[in-house]
Measured scan of single mutants.
Amino acid sequence: GATAVSEWTEYKTADGKTYYYNNRTLESTWEKPQELK
């Protein structure tokens, strides 16, 4: 079936920290989303 993983994109900030952005909800988070675990 369809999965929600594709909504999240992993980015890195200029200082090398990783964060996650959800293209559907426009939410961003420092925590790894449940969908990616």
Rank of each mutant, 00 (worst) to 15 (best):
G1R: 07
G1F: 14
G1M: 14
G1W: 12
A2F: 12
A2Y: 11
A2T: 13
A2I: 13
A2S: 13
T3P: 12
T3L: 13
T3G: 13
T3R: 05
A4F: 09
A4I: 14
V5P: 13
V5S: 13
V5R: 07
V5Q: 13
S6Q: 10
S6D: 11
E7G: 06
E7T: 05
E7A: 06
W8G: 00
W8D: 00
W8L: 01
W8N: 00
W8H: 00
T9W: 07
T9M: 13
T9K: 10
T9D: 04
T9N: 07
E10Q: 08
E10K: 04
E10P: 04
E10Y: 04
K12M: 10
K12A: 05
T13V: 03
T13W: 03
T13Q: 04
A14W: 08
A14T: 10
A14Q: 09
A14K: 11
A14G: 07
D15V: 03
D15H: 04
D15E: 09
D15N: 08
D15Y: 06
D15M: 04
D15K: 05
D15R: 04
D15C: 14
G16W: 01
G16N: 03
K17F: 08
K17T: 08
K17L: 10
K17G: 05
K17R: 15
K17N: 06
K17Y: 07
Y19C: 11
Y20N: 00
Y20I: 00
Y20K: 01
Y21K: 07
Y21R: 07
Y21D: 01
Y21S: 03
N22E: 00
N22V: 00
N22S: 03
N23F: 09
N23R: 11
N23Q: 10
R24W: 09
R24F: 12
R24S: 08
T25V: 02
T25N: 02
T25H: 01
L26T: 09
L26Y: 13
E27L: 06
E27A: 04
E27V: 08
E27T: 06
S28F: 15
S28R: 13
S28M: 15
S28H: 13
T29M: 07
T29R: 10
T29K: 07
T29P: 01
T29S: 10
T29Q: 11
E31I: 11
E31Q: 08
K32N: 04
K32T: 08
P33E: 02
P33T: 02
P33K: 02
P33I: 03
P33S: 01
P33A: 02
Q34R: 08
Q34V: 12
Q34E: 15
Q34I: 11
Q34H: 11
E35A: 10
E35G: 09
L36C: 11
L36M: 10
K37M: 15
K37F: 14
K37N: 14
